[in-house]
Design a protein around this nucleic acid. Sequence first.
DNA 1: GGTTCTGGATAGTGTCACTATCCAAGTTTG
DNA 2: CAAACTTGGATAGTGACACTATCCAGAACC
Lengths: 203, 203
Amino acid sequence: MLISELAVQSGVPLATVKFYLREGLLAPGTATSATRASYDEAHVRRLRLVRALVEVGGLRLAAVHEVLAALDDPELPQHDLLGAAHDRLAAQVPAVDQAALDAADAHLARLGWRVHPQAPHRRVLARALAACTAVGHPVDPATIDTYARAALMVAEVDLASVPTTDRALAMERVVIGTVLHEPLLLALRRLAQAHVSARLAKR
Amino acid sequence: MLISELAVQSGVPLATVKFYLREGLLAPGTATSATRASYDEAHVRRLRLVRALVEVGGLRLAAVHEVLAALDDPELPQHDLLGAAHDRLAAQVPAVDQAALDAADAHLARLGWRVHPQAPHRRVLARALAACTAVGHPVDPATIDTYARAALMVAEVDLASVPTTDRALAMERVVIGTVLHEPLLLALRRLAQAHVSARLAKR
DNA sequence: GGTTCTGGATAGTGTCACTATCCAAGTTTG
DNA sequence: CAAACTTGGATAGTGACACTATCCAGAACC
């Protein structure tokens, strides 16, 4: 497949395909001559994945880069596939002050969740909690508990659906499950809010 | 309070406070002379809200504008406070093709959720589902059902925590609950994934 | 043999969220 | 009272980001 066909197939403008090649988000095709290269289905898939991560997942290209590096890394230990994906997805989360982190850890301890102390999402949690407090609407522990139960339900189906046989497929599933299912969950939450709200209004 | 004090109090650079005033994200202070104005606690609160929405909620300033307009609109009907907030939060979601929308509606119908056909989150859901399918990992209905149950749990505590007496406070709660609790839920989901993953590895 | 397409290089665009500078008018301080 | 500072308002500049456009010389198809 020529680069122009790749562009058409994937629905990505040619100029953008070239840009992704330059940025290393897409592997070069196999050169068939000095001025020609051929691309295959794998390139189409990769291109679609990049677009999905950017447009639906809201990732920036630097994050996409990290994710793709993880996908393509054959050295990545099978057992910490998820941790690797998470680290690469939240690498750029800014530092938070110790008090906020302690508050987040207190919740995690209450929930009985053992997570790696370097897990970047501890910081995300801490930031979110601190922000709610800062605007005068602190999150109460009972609310956290409900959110946590919901999160646990979701996490269980997420991990259950990861194939155990094919490593490459598992890796891809983890990434897609983590990134592309987020808007899914958020959309469902807002729709559920609308549903519950309508239900309440009817009574 | 002078503008320079407001900047210090809120932790926002003076140049940025001026910028927000220009953009209409912050109400002008009450002029005490031709070259002086005074600001109060309400300005500090508003400034903190704007920063939280931007930094933690990831909203762009145009969306913050919409949200603040809703917060400040005394005409807004009490009963559809949530709908108004949602519409303003997802106004710029691009259109999706009919097939994707139909797929999303099929799920909603199965769940028995009655939502307004103009709810912008139907489109968000449709986009997310379509993206998963496009990259070769379609979401199966059982997964959606679990996500939906989790979303419903969360939505119920969200709405239960909205005060019914103070309209202004209720409005603020809806906005904060919708926007600032999102990173909370996402962080908890990822932490839950790590927790479940560790639990599985131990066996 | 002329049009079309290639990879590679370079430069330009538009959006976004600030950030910096300047100003004349007014206020505080010594 | 004068020097130094601060004010609101206007205007312009910055830097990150994700493209998008143009140009090129050398193939390749027809």
